[in-house]
């Protein structure tokens, strides 16, 4: 049972960046593309996102499954959205040519509908492009300090580190608890009833949780006894933005600023029809 995030982009351009850059870029990117309806604009942003993703150096083999899952999920969502939605068809110009009627709801599909669906799909994909590096290019041990230096409370930031410390031991206790119950003849419930099935999870979930909570009391004491919780805390990992980091952040901030302005001016709110 492996409970550490896979670190795939070792040595790449993005892996050498300050982890705060990798956390801030997706935020700026969301600000930029949120609510944009013009496919051309979203495609332009996606080009930026793609360049960013390429710099992460994530090997394709390692993430094939993730992309497949992500794309399937998003495609289904977008299909459903195009079928169910009435808003887009309403946006279509009065005399617009109906290409075909969607199954089930029989709502008319026009170039506008298609363009809009493509916009949504591309936006999801581009968001994944900027946020996959968070999963694959940040060492888990850097997360706590990154949040602390982003202004989160020192204690909560340490909580992130502590969560990663608890992951392997929790996984081990899960294994042991399942073993301990198996010895008592615990086997899976064959019932189709979801309530039954959930009830049959209690022998594992309850002792696992209760044990973790009882042990936590000692961890709290141990942390207090080693001076945890002061206002100032040194983090052994030293984070500093270098010129490149600042350039990247400035670049994405500029994109976000331009896009927000365009949105305010109403330049990107129209669905683009070829």
């Amino acid at each position: 049972m492996d409970v550490t995030p896979r670190y795939l982009g070792a040595g790449s351009f993005l892996s050498r960046r300050d982890p705060r850059v990798l956390l801030l870029v997706p935020v700026l990117y969301i600000v930029a593309v949120a609510g944009v309806d013009d496919l051309r604009v979203v495609l332009a942003c996606t080009a930026v996102a793609l360049a960013y993703y390429r710099a992460a150096g994530i090997p394709w083999r390692g993430v094939r499954a993730n992309w497949a899952f992500m794309l399937t999920l998003t495609t289904l969502l977008v299909l459903a959205n195009s079928i169910l939605t009435s808003a887009v068809s309403a946006q279509a110009g009065p005399g617009e040519q109906v290409l075909f009627n969607a199954p089930i709801t029989h709502s008319p599909v026009t170039w506008t509908t298609l363009s809009y669906a493509a916009t949504v799909l591309v936006r999801y994909v581009s968001l994944a492009l900027v946020s996959f590096p968070v999963a694959f290019n940040i060492a888990p041990s850097d997360l706590g300090v990154a949040f602390a230096r982003l202004g989160l409370s020192q204690r909560l930031a340490y909580g992130v580190d502590l969560t990663f410390r608890f992951l392997p031991s929790t996984a081990a206790s899960l294994r042991e608890t399942v073993d301990a119950q198996r010895i008592r003849g615990y086997e899976h419930s064959r019932s189709r009833n979801p309530v039954r099935r959930l009830l049959s999870l209690r022998p594992v979930v309850v002792p696992l949780t209760v044990n973790a909570l009882i042990d936590a009391e000692d961890t709290v004491n141990a942390m207090d006894l080693r001076g945890f919780g002061g206002r100032h805390r040194t983090w052994m990992r030293d984070l500093a933005f270098d010129r490149t980091d600042l350039l990247i952040l400035a670049g994405f901030s500029a994109v976000a600023a331009v896009m927000v302005t365009a949105k305010i001016l109403g330049l990107t709110g129209e669905v683009w029809v070829p």
Binding site: G159, V160, T170, A216, M223
Partner: peptide
Amino acid sequence: VVYGAVGAA
């Protein structure tokens, strides 16, 4: 903090 971390884990 500890209970939050335990819960998250």
